[in-house]
Design a protein around this nucleic acid. Structure first.
Length: 265
DNA sequence: ATACCTGTTTCCCG
DNA sequence: CCGGGAAACAGGTA
């Protein structure tokens, strides 16, 4: 379930492995997550290396190993990280396994939309250091939203929110949550949004990003009670604010859920 | 059997 | 060159 806060939580699953050496590496020869690199290189570079730190930025993860090795990891649609004891036997969906003396670190991804990257160097790779500002950063301010909306004036606002160039870590459920709170219809074109409504939108982007980190990001469970999240997954849900039946429809290429009346075109 | 899916990249169009 | 949208990727689940 990998959006901003779920990625942060997933990343922490490997924390018990920090400071420990990797004895052995398993790579699944059939997994597409290796499409940008060679499995042989992953095995040779990570075998014997010590995991020294981990970090996330939006949906991206970066693990640092001794010997100036770096492993970039993206969970895609169905990726997940796990930790098991050292007698763990891999299953079909496991893409990468780092075997340590006391535990096994697992990257599992049945649908294989995730991806791995390798980098060697004193500094983190440029694709990481050049990522757009995080929504959680105090420097993430409304000008970013204003500029994006100006540039993409014809796009439905829902599609803009999902654009990782501007909103690192925003995913489908977060975007629906934000628009529901800001009372904006997901199909609304950016050009049709007033600066007053834009302000509300920015406030809710920050609120949902921070709120998700403080709930999902901490314990890995669901967001707080009352969030749209709990009722948006399937047809038949009701708006937590107005108790009116919700609408689900594809907008901007993704299933969107909104509350008619509250969010009008 | 069929439809659906918490993401990203690539390709095509204007 | 750009912005915008659809298709493709793949397999588990309902």
């Amino acid at each position: 379930m990998p959006e901003l806060a779920e990625v942060a939580y997933a990343c922490r699953q490997w924390n018990p492995g920090i400071g420990k050496f990797v004895k052995e590496v398993y790579t699944n020869p059939n997994s597409r997550v290796f499409r940008d690199l060679s499995r042989e290189q992953v095995m040779s570079e990570l075998s014997g290396a010590k995991l020294t730190s981990s970090a996330t930025h939006g949906k991206q993860m970066l693990f640092k190993f001794s010997g100036n090795r770096w492993l970039g990891l993206h969970l895609g649609m169905t990726g997940s990280l796990h930790i098991e004891n050292s007698s763990y036997k891999h299953c079909k969906q496991d893409a990468l396994i780092l075997l340590q003396s006391k535990q096994t670190l697992i990257f599992r991804d049945p649908r294989q939309f995730g991806r791995l990257r390798l980098h060697t160097g004193k500094e983190a790779p440029s694709w990481w250091s050049e990522l757009p500002l995080s929504m959680l950063d105090s420097e993430f301010q409304s000008e970013i939203l204003d500029d994006a909306m100006k540039r993409h004036s014809k796009r439905p606002v829902k599609a803009l929110l999902l654009d990782q160039r501007y909103f690192q870590g925003m995913g489908n459920w977060m975007a629906d949550e934000v628009l529901w709170r800001a009372h904006i219809h997901p199909a609304q074109r950016c050009a049709g949004i007033s600066s007053a409504v834009r302000k509300k939108l920015f406030t809710q982007i920050k609120f949902v990003a921070n709120g998700a980190m403080n709930s999902v990001g901490k314990h890995g469970g669901d967001p707080p009670k009352g969030w749209l999240f709990h009722v948006r997954w399937k047809n038949g849900g009701f708006c937590p604010k107005t108790n009116v039946p919700l609408i689900r429809e594809e907008i901007g290429g993704r299933t969107s859920c909104w509350s008619p009346g509250l969010q009008k075109l």
